[in-house]
Design a protein around this nucleic acid. Sequence first.
DNA 1: ATAGGGTTAG
Length: 581
Amino acid sequence: MALAYYYLDTLLQRCTSFSHIKQLHSHLLTSGQLHSSPTAAAKLLDLCAVSSAADISYATRLFRRLPSAPSTNAWNALVRGLAQSPDPTRAISWFRDLSRAPQKADALSCSFALKACARALASFEAREIHSQVVRLGFGADVLLKTTLLDVYAKVGDLDCARKVFDEMCRRDIAAWNALIAGLAQGSRPTEALDLFRRLREEEGLRPNEVTVLGALSACSQLGAFREGEKILEYIMDERLDLNVIVCNAVIDMYGKCGFSEKAFGVFRSMRCRKSLVTWNTMIMAFALHGEVNKALELFRQMREAGVEPDDVSYLGALCACNHAGLVDEGVRLFDSMAWCGLVPNVKHYGSVVDLLGRAGKVQEAYKMISSMPMVPDVVLWQSLLGACKTYGDVEMAEVASRKLMEMGSNSCGDFVLLSNVYAAHERWDDVGRVREAMKNRDVKKIPGFSYTEVDGVIHKFVNGDQSHAKWHEIYAKLDEIKFKLKAYGYVAKTNIVLHDIGEEDKENALCYHSEKLAVAFGLISTSEGTPIHVIKNLRICEDCHVVIKLISTIFSREIIVRDRARFHRFKGGLCSCKDYW
DNA sequence: ATAGGGTTAG
């Protein structure tokens, strides 16, 4: 007997395991419904392809044995299921088959196929489907356009995403959200925030949870805490703080802007249930600030709160140990991952190698790299090389450098480190050889920059920068600083500068590092006693670290510097990193 | 009978 549709729907809902699906399949087969009703067939396919009990290979077999030509719905079930499967590229080829089939692709087919492109990072295919969307006459579909925009952003083609956005004749909040989030995730946070401002000022649309997430992520990257706090005010006004993901983003924003205590305040007082990500974000925030004990305490507490740590939690805890030089604790944590059934990934290895290397255990770090079950990446060898520089290990430095060359790394920093190791041993011929190799290769130098915010305006500096409107005053301040430092017995640490320039030039090269310019600018343009926040894209250099410590005493200022890896909080001549970084 | 936007990571 054929099942009535409402009865079929009930059955479909109750299918929670694969054996249920098979039972239903055989029932539809014996009752003849699979043949007589395309709807029933499509529904069964959908169940096989996308439900919790899904089995995509069963779905494809079922599809191929369909008695009559599959309906568009049947195709869609497959494309959707494949788009969510481990190999989303298969969805794209099924979509191509659909385009050649007598049944036409509809807007949904396109949407699912585009999702697959996003997951597979297939930008060429996304373009292809885009043109098909237009040809099929779905060019004005707001939902499809939003998907399209989102896909372009996710495959890294932000300019295309922007173009789709600009061409939309009607934009609702989701379209804005897609672009704001896309820009934030694509490391273009300034544009994301511009768009967020425009949305509020021009369009009269109300930002929702998703909007503020994109904007907060942009603030985290920029270290823009004033903007971040304004967004937090809006969140509280609109009661968006009932959403745990929003709370996580706020915690992250405070953490990345240098306020671990404020982050913890949000963590403690949030009105919704904490998720795994909440704990991980807070642990990482403490780690970033070098507050090991707080990070490890939270790591312990999360279990008591019934939240099992995952690989990201462990990474946060390892990172905390790394920033504090807790070697034994770090190694112990790393080893204990297996007890929880967690498999360390390259980042866990990276963290431990760095931890061992910084502590001077260069051999052990090397052993760790050699014993890794996956291919060590550039970052790992760079950590080892950095350790070799600190501890003057020439042989190991050569090993690491050779690996880096083999891997095609031609970043300036790698050469400079090796050259410094040789220089420390006064092996000038080798130094010259490295310099020669740098000239012969097309060495990439990442320009260092720092910036600081004053009255809502971001002031950015590069090394030796003279483009700022107030550069004369800034350099005058640095001269004053230089003079005062002498009284404290300061001598420039010129050993970290390349060796083919004169001693005085070396001192000058150091003297005008971007972070010093930013700090000097902070000193002359903010009132006494207010903290100065600086963000830097690279790691802070030894000389700047010494100088800024002294500045914090001489001028009684708290100076907070976020470098590539962590925060340095300078106060009263000391730094929160305890000179270990 | 199925569509768009989302947090943590060396």
